[in-house]
Design a protein around this nucleic acid. Structure first.
Lengths: 134, 134
DNA sequence: ATAGCTGCAAATGCTTTGCAAGGCC
DNA sequence: GGCCTTGCAAAGCATTTGCAGCTAT
């Protein structure tokens, strides 16, 4: 019963050594569908699963996965980064009360005019965050 | 030669005491057209102008002004907040190379479909950041 | 005089880095 | 064995808070 590429292959394909720590994190991230996690959330989870990984290693690994294109980093609040396992183009709701991030279904939002990049620059990405109260 | 409400009136109207520190900051923010500043940038400026204000007070004041509706806070990177003196609905370019934020002219971007707020929530704001390379 | 607000030193908490330990050829 | 990589302790920063001091009445 395998619905996704195995965690070990994802790590290897990213050009990273499949260490015990990275595998534990990759399994938590990729074996359970789309997820939006902070470093702290993931650290709590991995410790609960019985694998000792320091918070610093969680940060380093999240950034390595992001650079390798396995994750997307989303900034919603000063001093807190979220990492999204869905790397395709899409946008987000941010529930301020619960500090939770969720995907906006692709057909519910659309930009009909996008500005041209100013002279000498290129557009790297367009991030839309819909902030929710309540 | 006065083009804007005087800084002292803005501070008073916000229900804040017009102290020496707040006035110095308000002048720098509001007497020179639209601005995008970080706490640190504003602190450097105010010190250079010869008024002693601690960085903590700059932060506190920026947040007080934001709550009073004089400023809008924009989060672009984990660990860095910008404050925009233009509080009307508009969106932003973020120049990653220089760490600079600038307004996108209102007619150059448009959302044609906006998602409805999930059950039991209301949309507080929609923030669009176009990230630029180069 | 005094009640409440202000502004800052010190604390907090998220994130990054420098290096000792470990793995691979 | 030698060299590159890894993972974490300790350091670094942006931001917040608790309280001594000031201000307006």
């Amino acid at each position: 019963m395998r619905h996704h590429p195995a965690a070990i292959d994802r790590v290897r394909d990213a050009g990273l050594r499949p260490t015990r720590q990275r595998l534990a994190l990759a399994r938590l991230l990729f074996d359970n569908g789309d997820r939006h996690v902070t470093a702290e959330m993931l650290h709590t989870e991995v410790m609960a699963s019985g694998v000792g990984v320091s918070l610093a290693t969680v940060y380093n690994t999240l950034h390595q996965f992001t650079e390798a294109g396995l994750l997307r980093e989303i900034v919603v609040e000063a001093g807190r980064s979220y990492f999204d396992t869905n790397t395709s183009a899409h946008h987000h709701f941010f529930h301020e009360r619960h500090g939770q991030l969720s995907d906006i279904p692709g057909d519910e939002i659309e930009l009909c005019r996008v500005p041209s990049a100013p002279e000498g620059t290129t557009i790297k990405s367009v991030d839309v965050i819909v902030r929710l109260d309540g």
